[in-house]
Design a protein around this nucleic acid. Structure first.
Lengths: 130, 130
DNA sequence: TGTTGCCTTGACACCGGCGGCAAGGTCTAC
DNA sequence: GTAGACCTTGCCGCCGGTGTCAAGGCAACA
């Protein structure tokens, strides 16, 4: 399979596949003319990468999952390094949820305050019309 | 007040203040020698900018708040444009919280699955030790 | 007069995941 | 033989807020 076909089947671009390669995630061999040649298993790898990116992982975080697949496991999740990343990411997400909850609350308060202020101004204007 | 003093008092850098200026948020006048001169009110403006940045606003979102302060209001929140931004941001945060909740759940499931798989492998190994 | 310490503008660097273009090689079909 | 569709490497651009450096002007004090 050449790079264009893999890109099409994985729903991404050739540019992206080359980018993953420079980061050690995808590993084609080369045909005599220098073209990248991918075997079927790489399709699965690319899907794993895309799924994890969609969740918010960066490429460095994804590496253990790819290694896990490459080691022959049917899921990229089950190797120790992957589990460690999953745990860390879960903690990060929890922390971010906390922070975002605080932000939400602050925004809500600012909004409430602003609206109350505006209504008060409105009433005051009615009482003393220009 | 020159730029260095404002930076020190606002807890930021001169580079940052100049950057805000290019984006129309801070407005110094100039002394005869070309130096930026800030009056006291600008300190308040910079604090407003920094507070909103910390919450996750970008500079474009912050503009109405600064304009509101500059219009003489004691809070940057109370003008219509600021309220509109607050509403929009609140909606964005809510959407993001939703999405992040989904991500959290997916991570949790992957983790649960991986751990279950590993335990099963562990037991199987015990039953058939090499 | 020289040093120090402020100020000025301008411009490059960073991060991450690509998009997109250029200049060129390769393969296939007509 | 030539058109077109693929492939190659390499490099710039983007986004946003800031760090940092260069080269120079200005103020004040010894």
């Amino acid at each position: 399979m050449l790079i264009g076909e893999l890109a099409a089947r994985a729903g991404t671009s050739t540019r992206t596949l080359r980018y993953y390669e420079t980061h050690g995630l995808v590993r084609p061999h080369r045909s005599a003319n220098g073209y990248r040649v991918y075997d079927e298993a790489e399709l699965r790898v690319v899907h794993e990468i895309r799924a994890l990116l969609a969740v918010g992982f960066d490429l460095a975080d994804i590496r253990p999952f790819v290694a896990c697949l490459r080691a022959g496991h049917s899921s990229g999740d089950v190797c120790p390094d992957s589990v460690a990343v999953l745990r860390r990411k879960l903690a990060e997400v929890d922390a971010y949820l906390d922070r975002l909850g605080g932000v939400r609350q602050q925004l809500q308060e600012q909004l409430t305050h602003a609206i109350a202020y505006r209504e008060e101004q409105c009433l005051r204007t009615r009482r003393r019309p220009d």
